[in-house]
Nucleic acid binder design. Sequence first.
DNA 1: CCGGAAATAATTTGATCATATTCTGTCCGC
DNA 2: GCGGACAGAATATGATCAAATTATTTCCGG
Lengths: 223, 223
Amino acid sequence: MGNQEPDTALRDGAGLPAHERVYRRLRTMVLFGELEPGQAVTIQGLTNQLGVGMTPVREALRRLIAEGALAFQDNRRICVPVLDAAAVEQLGLARAALEPELARRAATRATADDIARLRATDARLDRAIARGDVAGYLTQNHRFHAELNAIAEAPILTDMVDGLWLRFGPSLRVVCGLFGTRNLPDRHKDLLAALDARDSAAAAEAMHQDVSQGMAQIRAGLE
Amino acid sequence: MGNQEPDTALRDGAGLPAHERVYRRLRTMVLFGELEPGQAVTIQGLTNQLGVGMTPVREALRRLIAEGALAFQDNRRICVPVLDAAAVEQLGLARAALEPELARRAATRATADDIARLRATDARLDRAIARGDVAGYLTQNHRFHAELNAIAEAPILTDMVDGLWLRFGPSLRVVCGLFGTRNLPDRHKDLLAALDARDSAAAAEAMHQDVSQGMAQIRAGLE
DNA sequence: CCGGAAATAATTTGATCATATTCTGTCCGC
DNA sequence: GCGGACAGAATATGATCAAATTATTTCCGG
């Protein structure tokens, strides 16, 4: 059979280099659990699937591996990492150390517009949970935290946190697939109240709770 | 002129893929300040200098950029990042959040052999300082922290911290070049005492001091 | 004669390179 | 000062080589 059209998912992002498009595509796939933990990823498979040469694919993979989103197998195969209890613990520690600091900063900088935007995202998040829409939950939850981190204006910390989300994304998806959208932690209401009040300490505390509960959920879901 | 022999610094690591060798070489160059902040790095320059094709060089650069060791210029040129005050502040926050935790864990796991090895490294560090040997100071100081982090057995946290060191390496070298090895902070004695006593809290506190003083030094050195 | 382990052949996949194409910034002539 | 040609550098492709996994065959013991 001939090669089908080069994957509609790359239609946007025209003008960007091919390796950047491949990177973004794979990144969202990992972040939202479209690839499951342990799944193998081959270079040639991606070149066929995405309709680009191997050099851009290679670079995108190298970048994702450096960020921990993908991992080398014992041999030289590439796959989505499988988290063990120790990994989840370390990711939780790192998140608990960094994300409250971002929330603290956001509380001192958030404008009324910023908070309104966050509240709108949180409303979409609640609707997705009520609907039992796992993909919607993952998307909107990430969006909420990403918008909050952007307000903090700390690009280095934000990049580090993004890397952490990338690492537990596939596992979070698995856990949500098991338990649905019930029992999902959500300290966003406390957080929004703290932002309204410009209360840095309360914002940091709310974020700490949100992170702790979220990681506990993942740990529990992996038995 | 013809191309000279393919760089003696790549002689070791035989058997590893070329992109891995290029990555390690560039990584140590950045980590120990052999490249100064703002310096441009070209792909073709590296292919000539290291005697490899451009694909391995491309992958190594992509990886280093993902780790923050190198950065894109406005156009698509690559250079060593120049840190501003905000960047140093965020790096300091992240280090202060993560490295004390690693010290805490190391205190609960360190064997007598581990501590002896650390003490030997610290002795070499002191000799380098007394000698005014900047390169030796940078090497042994990094080695001390790397050995300590290895004891903590937390690979994810250790990787994150390694990435942070990569970011401020070039600037630390500049500061040391300005001020020599005088006034360099060193809470390593407190740290070793805490390890001897298996005192996690004291180890974390000593590391927090070491990090804070080190980052303050860098911030001061950049005016 | 049958089943399974070891050895070997075939396919798949990763690594590297040489080359072509595109883009950016610069320099010269008008 | 402006526009177009030129040079340099990065991006992207396909071909080629090496390593590894899988499939197949062979051979031996029961």
